[in-house]
Simulated scan of single mutants.
Amino acid sequence: MSHQVRAVVALEKSAPVTVETIVVPDPGPGEALVRVEACGVCHTDLHYREGGITDDFPFLLGHEAAGRVEAVGAGVTEVSPGDFVILNWRAVCGSCRACRKGEPWYCFATHNATQKMTLTDGTPLTPALGIGAFAELTLVAAGQCTPVDPAAPATAAGLLGCGVMAGFGAAVNTGGVGRGDSVAVIGCGGVGTAAIAGARLAGATTVIAVDVDPRKLERAARMGATHTVDANREDVVARVRELTGGFGADVTVDAVGRPETFRQAFYARDLAGTAVLVGVPTPDMTLELPLIDVFSRGGAVKSSWYGDCLPSRDFPMITDLYLQGRFDLDAFVSETIALDDVERAFATMRDGDVLRSVVVL
């Protein structure tokens, strides 16, 4: 049996998205059918629409989601119908060399559903990040479903599926921010703001927000930044050093992903500090640094893939922190919208006036 539902689809490169009727099959072995309750509008969805990730159009967009398991296929033991879950795009295999080393967050064989969702004419859809959650129902690998406390509203919980987790994890998991540390975050959109909030939760005492948009700096201050730097008006590296006793920050996070912002992150860190890249660059970008500076400064330069998270560990933990009033996921929700409003949400996102628009189904 299959299901026909409404969904947001990018039919061709750079064209406005449309709401189409799609066909979602019942789950096969290892798969789960999920009724989506809420899904955040992430920059990655816009990258898909613009052809900036692959050219496998048409795309079924949406990936930052939470909902209820409707049905499971043969052999599924991780989740059951009725479970409230956050969807993830790093379903670990458990058997690759990273998993066998006890580092499943680096899993080299993450997987998605085997069956294809399609348009009504049979055209197969490519789901964004293997999820495709701007839809009333979606089909995923069962390992992409992480059960969390159902007391959390889907509008908040779903944000852990991508942006908030990426930022929180970049600071806490990849950067290893700890008590008394100084942190500088470059780029204060959803990911950067989550890094700021995560750094404060982890015990950082100096948290510096850097951006070119005063609105974003104001939001960053509300989310825990102790200082703000307007990159249009100040020398970022010099100002971060000034705010950290002349040394530089213990951890810097580049949440933009451009050569110029990563250079700022590299030189704004303390000599033995850690620079983390979590912003996603485009394939054409290159970085040039004097090799002697890489050698002589010590410390670490790291990339953060999905915040180096382990969904089964991190999603329930952050959900619990939210329910305890210690991590304000609601503050990331700028507006709630309908499926038909996703194209407008992309325009609002470009303007920089939201942290997250969240589709409620």
Results as ranks from 00 to 15, higher is better:
residue 1 M to T: 11
residue 2 S to Y: 09
residue 8 V to Q: 01
residue 8 V to T: 06
residue 8 V to L: 06
residue 12 E to M: 01
residue 13 K to I: 14
residue 14 S to I: 08
residue 16 P to K: 00
residue 18 T to A: 13
residue 18 T to M: 04
residue 19 V to Y: 01
residue 22 I to D: 00
residue 25 P to K: 11
residue 25 P to N: 09
residue 26 D to H: 11
residue 26 D to Q: 13
residue 26 D to W: 07
residue 27 P to W: 12
residue 29 P to A: 15
residue 35 R to L: 04
residue 35 R to E: 13
residue 38 A to T: 03
residue 52 G to R: 14
residue 52 G to W: 05
residue 63 H to Y: 06
residue 65 A to W: 02
residue 66 A to Q: 02
residue 67 G to H: 00
residue 67 G to Y: 03
residue 71 A to V: 09
residue 72 V to T: 15
residue 77 T to H: 06
residue 79 V to D: 03
residue 79 V to F: 00
residue 82 G to T: 06
residue 85 V to W: 01
residue 89 W to F: 15
residue 91 A to W: 04
residue 94 G to R: 12
residue 106 Y to I: 02
residue 107 C to E: 12
residue 111 H to F: 14
residue 112 N to M: 12
residue 112 N to E: 14
residue 117 M to Y: 03
residue 118 T to D: 05
residue 124 P to M: 07
residue 125 L to T: 02
residue 126 T to I: 05
residue 126 T to K: 08
residue 128 A to E: 00
residue 139 L to R: 08
residue 142 A to K: 02
residue 143 G to R: 12
residue 147 P to D: 03
residue 150 P to M: 09
residue 152 A to S: 10
residue 154 A to W: 05
residue 155 T to S: 15
residue 161 G to V: 06
residue 165 M to I: 10
residue 168 F to G: 01
residue 176 G to I: 08
residue 177 V to N: 04
residue 178 G to V: 02
residue 189 G to N: 06
residue 191 V to K: 03
residue 203 G to D: 10
residue 207 V to P: 03
residue 213 D to S: 14
residue 214 P to W: 01
residue 214 P to K: 05
residue 214 P to R: 02
residue 214 P to L: 09
residue 221 A to M: 12
residue 223 M to Y: 15
residue 227 H to F: 11
residue 230 D to S: 06
residue 232 N to R: 14
residue 232 N to L: 15
residue 233 R to Y: 08
residue 233 R to L: 15
residue 235 D to T: 07
residue 236 V to T: 13
residue 237 V to N: 01
residue 243 L to H: 04
residue 246 G to H: 12
residue 249 A to W: 02
residue 250 D to W: 01
residue 252 T to F: 01
residue 256 V to Y: 05
residue 257 G to Q: 03
residue 265 A to V: 11
residue 269 R to M: 09
residue 270 D to N: 13
residue 271 L to M: 13
residue 273 G to A: 10
residue 274 T to A: 12
residue 276 V to P: 00
residue 279 G to P: 04
residue 285 M to C: 10
residue 286 T to M: 14
residue 291 L to M: 13
residue 291 L to D: 10
residue 291 L to K: 00
residue 295 F to I: 12
residue 295 F to M: 15
residue 298 G to M: 10
residue 302 K to S: 05
residue 302 K to Y: 09
residue 304 S to A: 15
residue 305 W to C: 00
residue 314 D to R: 01
residue 319 T to S: 00
residue 322 Y to K: 03
residue 323 L to D: 05
residue 324 Q to M: 09
residue 327 F to C: 05
residue 327 F to Y: 15
residue 327 F to W: 13
residue 328 D to Y: 04
residue 329 L to H: 07
residue 331 A to H: 12
residue 331 A to F: 13
residue 336 T to M: 05
residue 336 T to E: 14
residue 343 E to W: 13
residue 344 R to F: 06
residue 344 R to L: 13
residue 348 T to A: 13
residue 350 R to W: 07
residue 355 L to Q: 03
residue 355 L to G: 00
residue 357 S to M: 10
residue 357 S to H: 11
residue 361 L to D: 01
